[in-house]
């Protein structure tokens, strides 16, 4: 047997490109190593940042804008901000990270990093390196295997952090319960949370797709006014305010700023968790995409 076939056999047998798994019958006898955090410091180094800027501005941004019909609102909120913030968005698609990174003002884009699921984005070395380089990701354990001190360090170093507090992509396009990690981080460091509502990415590229649907589906990214932790406010209360802010932004995408503001004031904002109906109807409604408010002129009548 040649060395090449030995290497092939080993790469297949030991799942070099995938997450290693013990045989099922060995699981009770397997000592799982303490999960070691994938090192991502290198992805925030000067050369990696320069490479990322080229990739985002020269590759990803034109690509996203070519494949989708994107509208971005609310970027003026960054004019009054300096220093690290937590960017919190609803999460329905793998497009969301790309949408956020490509729509952020350049000076913010250079100093932002994204919390990504350790068990998904960091389970194989090639995926970990790729996502860390292009999206500046760092691993977040979703299943409570101990808290990482990486987000704290990043905020202390002046990095803004993108977090999707639902923990995973929505299966039906509506938002799920927000986990309090982002709010806790903001409260601990006394930094603002910038709510972001992304509408249409579920319709454009839901779970199971790895490329947007053809036809440049419409997507709406709306940045909201920062939510600042209040004196004496606990994490759950802050988390609730962030969640409400995103619901209001989603409502704003469907209606208009004033209507959404009035509904928010009277606490009549439609729940972003969606109607309590059958799963298919929730998916049906989400997959229709956002109301764009404009009718594109058709080339053919």
């Amino acid at each position: 047997m040649s060395i090449a076939s030995d290497v092939r056999k080993m790469s297949r047998g030991w799942r070099w490109t995938r997450r290693p798994l013990p045989p099922q019958s060995a699981e009770p006898h397997h000592s799982f190593n303490e999960p070691k955090e994938f090192p991502t410091d290198w992805a925030r180094s000067r050369p990696a940042r320069a490479a990322r800027e080229v990739l985002l501005r020269g590759g990803l941004n034109p690509l996203v804008r070519r494949e989708t019909s994107m509208r971005v609102d609310g970027l003026d909120i960054f004019d009054d901000l300096d220093g690290p913030v937590i960017l919190v968005a609803n999460h329905t698609s793998h497009l969301d990270t790309a949408l956020l990174l490509t729509t952020l003002p350049v000076q913010w884009q250079r100093k932002v990093t994204v919390g990504a699921a350790a068990d998904y984005f960091f389970d194989a070395w090639w995926r970990a390196i790729g996502s860390a380089l292009v999206f500046a990701t760092f691993p977040i354990e979703r299943h409570g295997q101990g808290l990482s001190d990486t987000p704290t360090k990043l905020v202390e170093q002046g990095w803004s952090i993108v977090m999707f507090p639902e923990g995973t992509r929505s299966p039906d396009g509506w938002t799920r319960r927000f986990k309090p990690g982002a709010a806790a981080l903001a409260r601990t460091h006394g930094i603002p949370v910038v709510p972001v509502a992304i509408s249409g990415s579920f319709a454009a590229m839901p779970r199971g797709r790895n490329w947007p649907k053809p036809g440049r589906p419409p997507i709406h990214v709306r940045y909201g006014r920062p939510v600042r932790p209040l004196e004496g406010e606990n994490t759950l209360a802050l988390n609730g305010r962030v969640s409400a802010a995103i619901s209001a932004l989603i409502d704003e995408a469907d209606t208009d700023w004033y209507t959404a503001a009035r509904r928010a004031a009277t606490e009549t904002t439609p729940p972003s968790a969606g109607p309590d109906v059958a799963h298919w109807r929730r998916v049906w409604q989400s997959s229709a995409g956002p109301k764009t408010g404009t009718t594109r002129s058709k080339a053919w009548r």
Partner: peptide
């Protein structure tokens, strides 16, 4: 030290 055991070969089992 872990005791000996009997493994059943499945799709995840390396050579």
């Amino acid at each position: 030290s872990r005791p000996g055991f009997v493994l059943t070969v499945d799709e995840r089992t390396p050579p």
